[in-house]
Amino acid sequence: MTAQEILKKVKDNFRHSVLEAALFRNEATVLVDKNVLRAVCNYLKTDPDMQMNYFVDCLGVDYHPAAPRFEVVYHFYSIPKKHRIRVKVKIGEGESVPTVTDMWSAANWPEREAYDMFGIVFEGHPNMKRIYLADDWEGFPMRKDYPLRGYKDRYNPFGEDKE
C-alpha cells in the first residue's frame, strides 16, 4: 500500500482519535490520542491490509518548553506488505504511555531506552528500568534542559553547576 492509502485507512478507522495525519517525503505519520494508542497498534498489527508485524523503533522527542512536552514516536514495518508507518502520541511531563511489549517483544529495549533518556514511563512494561546509564544516575540526559556536558561532580569537572 502507498503511504496515502495507509493514512486514509487509519483515518477512516479512527476518525475521532487521529489528531493529525501528515505526509512528508512520502512517509505516513499519524498523531493519535494516547487513549487509543494500543487500539491503533493492534489494528496495524492484525488488519490483513496492514500486517505491521515488525516493530522497528520507539523513541522519545522532547519539545521543551512546549506543553505537552514529549512525543513518543513508533515506527512499524510490514515484512509481507513492505510498507511503513509512523505513529506518534503526545504526553506531558509525568504522564505515562501504555506499553506495546505484549504485541511486539521487540519493543522491550527501545521502551527502556526512551525511559532512560527522557524519563517516559511505559505502563505495563515487564522491566521498566534504565538500560544504558547506571541505575543510580540522576536526571534524563536527552531532555533539552539537561546540559550537553552533564552536571559537575567529582568525575566530571567540565560539567555545568547544578543550580
Binding site: V56, D57, L59, V61, H75, N108, W109, P110
Partner: peptide, 26 residues
C-alpha cells in the same frame, strides 16, 4: 535507520539511530 526531526535550522532537533546490534541483542 536514522530518524531526524528538523525544526528548520542547520542542526537536527532530534536524531535517533535505530541500530541493529541493539535490537538483535534482545
Amino acid at each position: 535507520g536514522v530518524y531526524i526531526v528538523s525544526d528548520g535550522s542547520e542542526k537536527p532537533y532530534r536524531l535517533k539511530l535505530r541500530v541493529p546490534s541493539f535490537m538483535n541483542l534482545q
